[in-house]
């Protein structure tokens, strides 16, 4: 553990701007700056994130660490910063981790196949507003990894469930719905994530308020797909 002092902090600074100031000072003193991941600093790219006093993205609900401002803290506070804690996210340096396991879960089935240029007119299939809205709620996931880091099992159920729900709620996503659930969950299980035991820490930590209901949707899809998959295998082998 390393201890740093953050001086000249304004309440209007973002948390990362505070770290910028600390780093500038460290470099000037000839010390190595603190490495942390960040990019858009608008809470949408999902690059940033670490634990502040044991809480993913810090104390403010629905807020990524880049949008957290120092007015959420008091002068003299002692803050413990740690990288995401999960075997599936190996630490690269300081507060930066490798989250490529998420990409592999998406690659396994988190998409709707639509060959470029082959699509029909966008309004030819109406989608009830309620479904479109729920799909959007799930699609808001930014892939930051706070759910995994907060879960005592380091499960990626919220992340995987969000994508399965987003695509499964839309008519366009039906053809691959079973395959998607089977393949994404197989990939999720083969990475070093734990299983979901419905604790709910993930939902509380999610900066985009992704609901725990996506996990129920995922489990339902997986169950149905497994049953149908057995049937399909049997039929084809007959």
């Amino acid at each position: 553990m390393q201890r740093y002092e953050a001086k000249d902090v304004s309440p209007d600074m973002s948390f990362l701007e505070m770290l910028d100031v600390v780093n500038e000072k460290l470099i000037a003193e000839g010390t190595a700056p603190i490495t942390f991941e960040h990019d858009c600093r608008e809470g949408i790219c999902g690059s940033c994130g670490f634990m502040i006093n044991g809480v993913a993205h810090g104390p403010k609900s629905g807020t990524t660490v880049c949008q957290l401002h120092m007015r959420s803290f008091k002068d003299g506070d002692e803050l413990y910063l740690e990288p995401w804690r999960a075997k599936a996210f190996p630490v690269l340096k300081d507060l930066m981790v490798d989250r490529n396991a998420f990409d592999r879960i998406i690659a396994a089935g988190g998409f709707i196949t639509a060959r470029t240029g082959s699509a029909q007119d966008a309004n030819s299939i109406p989608v009830p507003k309620a479904y479109a809205d729920r799909a959007m709620d799930a699609a808001a996931c930014i892939g930051c990894g706070a759910c995994v880091a907060s879960c005592p099992n380091a499960s990626a159920a919220l992340f995987t469930g969000a994508k399965i729900s987003h695509l499964g709620l839309l008519p366009q996503g039906q053809a691959e719905r079973d395959r998607r659930a089977l393949r994404m969950i197989a990939q999720f299980s083969s990475e070093l994530f734990g299983s979901c035991t419905n604790i709910g820490e993930c939902e509380a930590a999610c900066p985009k308020h992704i609901s725990l209901s996506v996990i129920a949707q995922m489990n339902g899809d997986y169950l149905k797909a497994s049953v149908r998959d057995r049937g399909a295998v049997k039929e084809s082998s007959d």
């Binding site: 998409f111 709707i112 639509a114 470029t116 240029g117 082959s118 699509a119 029909q120 007119d121 966008a122 309004n123 299939i125 109406p126 989608v127 009830p128 507003k129 479109a132 799909a135 959007m136 699609a139 987003h166 695509l167 839309l170 366009q172 996503g173």
Partner: peptide, 22 residues
Amino acid sequence: VSIIDQCVAQGVPFAREYGGLL
């Protein structure tokens, strides 16, 4: 025109009216 078709086919959850249209 084709971009919107392509993106809807991929599952981009564009905003919709109550009638289900974009």
